[in-house]
Design a protein around this nucleic acid. Structure first.
Lengths: 236, 236
DNA sequence: AAGTGGTCTAGACCACCAG
DNA sequence: TGGTGGTCTAGACCACTTA
């Protein structure tokens, strides 16, 4: 059974995206929506809260809810994006799996993932090629206790789609850290690094629904092609 | 009159921070908190939702709400941080106001802030010095229609504290974009740039409660000292 | 089976905005 | 003054976890 407020959320979102609810205009009031969807006000409000959280609308006390220009923020990484999602917006991209092995992790990965000595991890090295240039080097480490099997085909497609759709693993949080480092030999070997001597590194820790950490990634971007957009709402 | 769910939110948060509610342990159940605070369940749930949104707790169906290790994420920029907040965690820092003028904005600022020809803006150039090194160059542009007066003292302290506490301006959203650029003459002039030839730029657009854009910033960071932490919750 | 959080309802009063 | 969203209540049923 589908949740009522989810259904309403999606219905309103589709009306925003189709232009039925116009940017900078008010959407129908809560009391109207109560009648329209034949639900309680609280259920309508749940749907609207989520739309506001995701910055599609802004609620204005005494006035109504206004539609925000979402076009500008559509590339936002405030949600947890996978490369495949980003890739959909770029016509010419490719993922090359350089290696994929079940290994006893090196000391610093063991620390990052809080592992025991006997734990094993999948190490996946991938290169992202955009418009014919090798731009991003991804190093993924996945706990084998959570992800038992992995194939080259899955890594070429999208690891996260496999985890979520096939293994039915629920991801709750991701913590990302952005910093810069000097270029390493590995960067030079795998990427079209040109004469840049710095690289932008995005380190991600991904947590399951039960708050256990199971995945660590280092995504190394050639600096000229790096772009991260973040959209923050202020709580009051 | 203070809001009940705000009060409960702050009370639970203080108990998490003081260690009364321990990391990885469950906090009291919703039904217990209903009795403890003598409010309805919905009010308790509002407080807990906010704590979950801000990643202090994680609610687990059928089990309870677990406290997340917040120490690790405390430097997070998922909220809208000002330099002053960040500065509190660093012992030795200083803000130098290099210039502050009410100007007719250059063309690209007019575009960024969607201004008319007659509109004027405050341009503030500041340098952030950390442990004796000039690390960050901030260029701020504020619409004079929103911020009429500005002084050097305010800029040395915190522009945002002035806006929020003195002018009572409510900030609703901020959009941040992170990218890298080549070092400019201005960077070399104002910063201790060493021999780095790249700089990490954070461009921010800040919106008011009524969704109007009023502030554009470029924060230019020496790459070796740049660090951005982002914490994302996954919606289901 | 008992306890937990998740969804949903129906109703109340308030502060804010517009005409 | 009438309509809007914001807060708060009391009660219901559900799915999930743990024992």
């Amino acid at each position: 059974m589908e949740l009522k407020y989810e259904k309403i959320y999606r219905d309103i979102l589709s009306k925003i995206k189709s232009g039925e609810y116009k940017v900078n205009a008010l959407i129908p009031s809560e009391s109207y929506l109560v009648g329209y969807y034949n639900v309680s006000r609280d259920t309508v409000r749940k749907a609207l809260s989520r739309l506001e959280n995701e910055a599609y609308i802004k609620k204005l006390k005494g006035k109504g809810s206004i539609v925000i220009d979402v076009q500008k923020y559509d590339f936002s990484l405030s949600k947890i994006h996978t490369f495949k999602e980003i890739g959909k917006k770029i016509k010419d991209y490719k993922t090359i799996v350089e290696s994929m092995n079940l290994i006893t992790p090196p000391e610093y990965i063991k620390r990052e993932l809080c592992l025991d000595d006997s734990d094993k991890v999948w190490e996946v090295i991938r290169v992202r090629e955009i418009y014919g240039e090798k731009i991003i080097l991804d190093k993924d480490y996945l706990c084998s206790s959570v992800v038992e099997n992995l194939t080259k085909e899955i890594c070429e497609d999208s690891i996260y789609e496999y985890l979520e759709n096939i293994l039915n693993i629920k991801i709750a949080y991701a913590r990302k850290e952005i910093l810069t480092e000097s270029v390493t030999d590995l960067d030079i070997e795998y990427l079209d690094i040109k004469d840049y001597n710095m690289i932008v590194v995005v380190k991600s820790h991904t947590y399951l629904d039960d708050t256990t950490l199971f995945h660590y990634t280092e995504s190394r971007h050639r600096p000229d092609k790096f772009n991260f957009i973040h959209f923050a709402r202020r709580y009051n």
